[in-house]
Amino acid sequence: MAAENIDEVVDELAGIVREAGRTGDRAGYFAALYRQVTVEVRTAIHGGLFDDGARMDRFDTLFGNRYFDAYDAWHRDRSGPRCWRESFGLLDDADTVIVQHLLLGVNAHINLDLAIAAARTSPGEAIHALRRDFLLINEILARVVLVVQDSVGALSPLMSLLDQVGARTDERILDFSVRQSREEAWYNAVLLAGQNEGEREATIERLDIRTAVLARLLARPGGLARPALQLIRSTESADVPAVITHLDNAMQRPSARQGTG
């Protein structure tokens, strides 16, 4: 059943996190991150931080339902968008590290779903009035992502190796991914908002293919990243329910609150 408002999005995500923790399903990693983002967006709506709170409730609900549709399709018959199939297809791969699971979810949800949700919320010329709120929701996303990445550091002591082998010593992995992706998502939102139905379908198909290619690169990087990932995996927690619980509580820790206030 589709969520009808942001409260139902939060509740549905919480249910996925609980079930994943019970069964040891790594889908709970990204769901835990996403639940906290949605809670923060809801808090911002209630606090009057958006230009149009009701519009952002609709936006976030459409955004959330994109994820739920992909999640349900995968569990039903392994169908759904290509990029989400790439992400969900690695859930049983014990060699995939925690941050890869988070990046794969971020990749699919921002590079495909975010632009679609924005264009459906504000079609046509109305998309331009959404820009400030769109940027604010992405600031919230980036802030939560950084807190969760700090939380991952407690579970994966050698994760900083990925930055080093990627020659990004001054940028954290998830933050880099989010900042790059959200800029392009706005461009694609404006593009989709101005297209007719046939054009939108073609654009969404193109975005899905491109995002699936990115997912494969994230899942199976070359060069020095491959041995680095193997070393990271050997040192990080293999207790899936414990990892989910740790990630899901990231924003409740005092240090997180001080850093995001």
Rank of each mutant, 00 (worst) to 15 (best):
Tyr67Pro: 05
Thr121Asn: 05
Val148Gln: 06
His101Lys: 04
Leu104Arg: 15
Asp51Leu: 04
Thr260Pro: 00
Ile209Lys: 13
Arg233Asn: 15
Arg42Ala: 09
Arg58Leu: 14
Glu19Pro: 05
Gln164Arg: 14
Val9Ile: 12
His46Ser: 09
Asn107Pro: 03
Ser234Cys: 04
Val152Asn: 01
Met56Glu: 13
Glu86Asn: 06
Gln100Glu: 14
Thr61Glu: 07
Gly47Thr: 05
Val147Gly: 01
Arg257Ser: 07
Asn5Asp: 14
Asp60Lys: 11
Thr61Ser: 04
Phe50Lys: 01
Ala219Thr: 04
Tyr71Gln: 08
Ala242Thr: 13
Asn188Ala: 12
Thr211Glu: 03
Val9Lys: 01
Ser87Lys: 09
Leu231Gly: 08
Ala228Lys: 11
Ile232Arg: 02
Phe50Asn: 04
Asp77Cys: 12
Arg233Ile: 06
Glu201Leu: 07
Gly223Tyr: 11
Val37Tyr: 09
Glu236Gln: 14
Val106Glu: 02
Asp92Cys: 01
Gly105Lys: 04
Ala185Tyr: 05
Phe176Ala: 15
Leu214Asp: 15
Tyr187Arg: 15
Glu199Met: 08
Ala219His: 09
Thr96Met: 11
Arg172Gly: 03
Pro221Asp: 06
Leu112Cys: 05
Met159Asp: 13
Leu102Val: 12
Ser151Asn: 08
Gly80Trp: 13
Ala108Phe: 04
Asn249Glu: 13
Ser255Pro: 00
Val99Trp: 04
Leu155Ser: 01
Glu184Met: 14
Leu135Lys: 13
Leu141Gln: 10
Val39Gln: 13
Leu192Ser: 05
Ile6Asp: 03
Arg66His: 09
Gly222His: 04
Leu174Asn: 04
Val147Pro: 00
Leu231Gln: 07
Val243Tyr: 12
Leu135Trp: 12
Leu162Cys: 09
Ala2Gly: 01
Arg172Tyr: 11
Leu229Tyr: 10
His101Tyr: 01
Pro157Lys: 05
Gly48Ala: 06
Arg120Glu: 11
Gly166Ala: 15
Glu171Gln: 13
Phe134Met: 12
Ile110Gln: 03
Thr211Arg: 11
Ser122Val: 00
Ile137Gln: 14
Arg120Asp: 11
Gly89Phe: 05
Ile16Tyr: 08
Leu13Val: 01
Arg22Leu: 10
Gly48Arg: 05
Ala212Gly: 01
Arg253Pro: 00
His246Asn: 03
Arg132Cys: 13
Ser177Asp: 07
Gly64Arg: 10
Arg257Thr: 11
Ala129Leu: 11
Asn138His: 08
Gln36Asp: 00
Ile6Met: 02
Ile137Val: 15
Val39Trp: 01
Asn196Ala: 08
Phe68Met: 06
Glu12Thr: 14
Trp84Arg: 01
Arg220Phe: 12
Thr96Asp: 00
Val41Ala: 12
Gly259Trp: 08
Ile244Pro: 03
Met251Thr: 14
Asp69His: 09
Glu4His: 10
Asp51Lys: 08
Ala142Lys: 01
Ala189Glu: 15
Leu141Asn: 11
Ile16Gln: 08
Ala185Arg: 04
Asp11Arg: 06
Leu49Pro: 02
Glu201Tyr: 03
Ala219Tyr: 06
Leu91Ile: 06
Gln230Ser: 15
Asp11Ile: 00
Ala154Phe: 02
Pro221Ala: 13
Gln149Cys: 02
Ala256Arg: 02
Ile232Thr: 10
Ala32Arg: 04
His75Ser: 07
Asp7Ser: 12
Ser181His: 03
Pro157Gly: 03
Asn65Asp: 15
Arg168Trp: 00
Ser87Glu: 09
Ala250Ser: 05
Glu125Lys: 10
Ser87Phe: 14
Arg226Glu: 15
Ile232Tyr: 02
